[in-house]
C-alpha cells in the first residue's frame, strides 16, 4: 500500500497518476459514505469516506482493518485536515480526529508514504 497525503489542492491525485503511470479510469473517488469500492487501484479522497463514517456512527480505522489485505495493492490518497483551528462543529471535530486515527493506521501499514507540497512529493517513509 502506498499512502499519499497533503493539504487541499496540492496536486496529490495528479502526482499519483503521473508517478505511477495511471489514469483517471484507475481512480475511485470516495463518497461521503462509510463503505469503499475496492475495484480500482487508487482510492482518492479518503477523508470523504471518513466523513461518511462519522455520519453513520462507524469508526473508519476499524473498517479499514476489516478490509485488511484488500488494501495491500492500493494507492490511498487523503487530504491532511489535521493542522487548522479545532472546528466548533462537533461533527467536523470528530471528522478531523477520525481522519487522524485512520491515517496513523494507514501510515503504519504502508510500504511507502509520500507527502505532497505544492505539487512536489516528499517520501517520508520508503
Amino acid at each position: 500500500m502506498i499512502l499519499i497525503f497533503g493539504g487541499a489542492y496540492q496536486g496529490k491525485l495528479e502526482y499519483a497518476l503521473k508517478n505511477f503511470g495511471l489514469d483517471e479510469s484507475d481512480v475511485y473517488h470516495c463518497e461521503e459514505k462509510g463503505t469503499l469500492d475496492l475495484s480500482h487501484k487508487v482510492i482518492y479522497g479518503l477523508e470523504r469516506f471518513v466523513l461518511g463514517c462519522v455520519r453513520e456512527g462507524k469508526e473508519a480505522k476499524d473498517l479499514l482493518l476489516e478490509y485488511g489485505e484488500a488494501l495491500e495493492d492500493k494507492i490511498i490518497i487523503v487530504t491532511d485536515i489535521s493542522q487548522g483551528v479545532v472546528p466548533i462543529d462537533p461533527e467536523l471535530r470528530s471528522w478531523r480526529e477520525m481522519t487522524g486515527r485512520a491515517m496513523l493506521y494507514l501510515g503504519s501499514k504502508a510500504e511507502k508514504t509520500i507527502r505532497i507540497f505544492c505539487g512536489l512529493g516528499q517520501e517520508i517513509k520508503c
Binding site: 497533503g6 493539504g7 487541499a8 489542492y9 491532511d80 485536515i81 487548522g84 478531523r96 505544492c118 505539487g119
Partner: peptide, 26 residues
C-alpha cells in the same frame, strides 16, 4: 490547506486560487 473546515465559497475559492499559484511557482 490543512484545515478541517467547510468554508464559504469565497474562502474556498481563495484557497484554491492560492494553491494554483503555489503549484505554478513551485
Amino acid at each position: 490547506y490543512s484545515d478541517a473546515q467547510l468554508f464559504d465559497e469565497y474562502t474556498e475559492n481563495y484557497r484554491k486560487s492560492l494553491a494554483l499559484i503555489d503549484r505554478t511557482l513551485a
